[in-house]
Design a binder for these strands. Structure first.
Lengths: 358, 358
DNA sequence: CTGAAAGCGCTTACAG
DNA sequence: CTGAAAGCGCTTACAG
């Protein structure tokens, strides 16, 4: 009953003890069936006794297996936010290249469901070993998912979560909770007494808005559960495909008798509102939004935006890739639901979040 | 002028093209000097043309070199905070074990400078390939550093930074800035008008307090630069080796006519103050402290602590190890100063910071 | 100064 | 069902 002389036992040692060749050891190690039951059991016993653990380097070096991971992500040229998960994905790719992993990245147009479908189909036809995507279009995603299940292709969601799927993992934010947190920050920032607070949901007409609503819900639920602040919450859906629409909407509320004390912008477009504030010299309105785009950082540092909620998108991308590496190569179990931390960024701590590093 | 047919060129290919043996290629690759200049240059030229990059798996597999990394960290049994960097260190150890890295961990007593010195000397005698430590005792650390320099042993600081050293890297927090941030949060949380705010610096008599003072300075500097809040800042140095001293100190200020509107505890002992609040049913005093000890989390969730400032200690440990891996094994340059993000944790986002995962 | 050979711990045909 | 051999891309003596 020795415990671990382990760590340096190889298939050769096992073969010797079991009086078989290393080929046979390999066969039982990989559950290939061309082994008689007696020898299989004998070998298995010795493997356990000796606490064998495979040398991954040798394994990878000897094996000619290549792993291809396909990634489908919204085109970052239309919204720079998507550069961030991509950055993490590429960083992970560099790290696991040595284990014969190759990452193939495809993009789609966030406001064009067909482009999503087409790209997804191309990917499935290419028969990758793993698939990472942002399932932003619900119905189309369901179809993709179905095909993945049929093909037994492991798939990972990031950014958006679809329930009741056999996805290997999900990496993203708890959107409702992030809205709830934003509301708490808002509550700290405004004085007691009656306040008007606006939720702005900026989006293109044809793009999905599911996220935005979840964040909105979280925000509203905070105030509806009786905090010390008496606040009236207003919601504004704004088409930001043309800039003038947002300006008009803001003009309207600022000239009304329900002037905002705070504005919560439910995505990374908060810089558009900040820009409006700057132009019109609006101070003393608390402004909270999402994500560390450089435009947002600028306004945060200027003091026009008070808080940015951030979800470490680079890390989401990075970890998505690694979940597949763990599954395919290390055969390690991976957690299915992985919420990113909901980071609170202010002028005083932005410095330490600017650069993504693993 | 082909660009990269790269990625799969090995020393064999180079040897063939250069009309030499792989042994010779290996010699120029490792700058061993037993090669004539002509062949060296010839081989070098081909290496560049072909864009050779070594296969790290094969390298590690063939090489019998072992790397030992020594770690010296305060004993976690006296202060559970230190479990956290340790966790990260161990996680990193598991990952790079396959590349022949072994991590040796030693601990010292935070309130006993001699134990630090002794352990450090033991480590230096064991002749590791890299050394990670928290240089909490300034003078003693300088001596250790000097020896490292002599031995040409690469060393990494974590938690505490000592300037003007040849340390390979540092991982820790910008303490001044974290105090500054805490002050900003305090400022958001208290109402305008005259307020009394207390800084509590809890420590054992014989332990170092450098950190605490930096955090204090940051906190004070925020308020001294004319914010909208008129606040009077008081500082309390408290010996927490016996619990009663803290209680007495708090009793004193709460029965004075300068009752606190907010308390900033400059380290992880904030739960001691929270405990006092709970016992004495003190509400409406803003309490801000440091670090995600489970005691602190408990009081945060109860709403007794409003904000915890956190510095990702697990990540600091993890990255310290990896900096040495990058340096020793990958021969990659590493950044010298690496500040952790200064995370703001509230009741609303604590959930996503509880578990350390890489 | 240089080459040929063995070996790191596995995988992968191939032969029986 | 099983074994012996070659090979993955390097490193490391050893011989000359």
């Amino acid at each position: 009953m020795k415990k671990e002389a382990a760590a340096k036992i190889g298939i050769k040692d096992i073969a010797k003890q079991a009086n078989v060749s290393i080929g046979t050891v390999d066969r039982v190690l990989h559950n290939r069936s061309e082994v008689s039951n007696t020898t299989r059991e004998q070998v298995l016993k010795i493997i356990n006794e000796l606490g064998y653990t495979p040398n991954l380097l040798a394994k990878s070096l000897a094996s000619k297996i290549k792993y291809t991971i396909a990634v489908l992500i919204p085109d970052p040229t239309n919204n720079t936010y998507w550069e961030k998960p991509l950055e993490g994905i590429k960083a992970a790719a560099r790290e696991i290249k040595k284990f014969n992993f190759e990452i193939q990245i495809a993009t789609f147009d966030y406001s064009n469901e067909n482009s999503f479908i087409e790209k997804a189909n191309e990917i499935l036809e290419s028969n990758p070993n793993g698939f990472i995507f942002a399932p932003v279009f619900f119905e189309s995603s369901l179809k993709v998912i179905e095909k993945c299940d049929q093909m037994e292709l492991p798939y990972v969601f990031f950014d958006v979560f679809i329930e009741n799927c056999k996805n290997l993992a999900y990496f993203g934010q708890n959107s409702v909770q992030s809205g709830y947190l934003a509301a708490s920050l808002m509550s700290y920032s405004i004085d007691k007494g009656t306040n008007h607070i606006y939720i702005v949901k900026p989006h293109n007409p044809s793009a999905p808005v599911y996220h935005l609503s979840l964040r909105e819900n979280g925000f509203i639920s905070y105030f509806s559960q009786g905090t010390t602040n008496q606040a009236t919450i207003h919601t504004m859906d704004v088409d930001v495909s043309s800039p003038s629409i947002l300006v008009e909407s803001l003009d309207a509320i600022f000239s009304s008798d329900q002037k905002p004390r705070g504005i919560f912008v439910a995505n990374s477009r908060v810089h558009l509102v900040a820009q409006y504030f700057e132009k019109n010299k609006i101070g003393n309105v608390v402004l909270i939004g999402y994500d560390l785009l450089h435009e947002n950082i600028e306004y945060l540092e200027k003091g026009i935006i008070q808080f940015l909620i951030c979800q470490k998108p680079e890390e989401q991308g990075y970890k998505s890739v690694f979940s597949l590496y763990n599954h395919l190569f290390l055969k390690k179990p991976v957690d299915k639901v992985n919420y990113s931390p909901i980071d609170i960024i202010m002028k005083e701590n932005i410095e330490y979040y600017k650069n993504f590093k693993i």
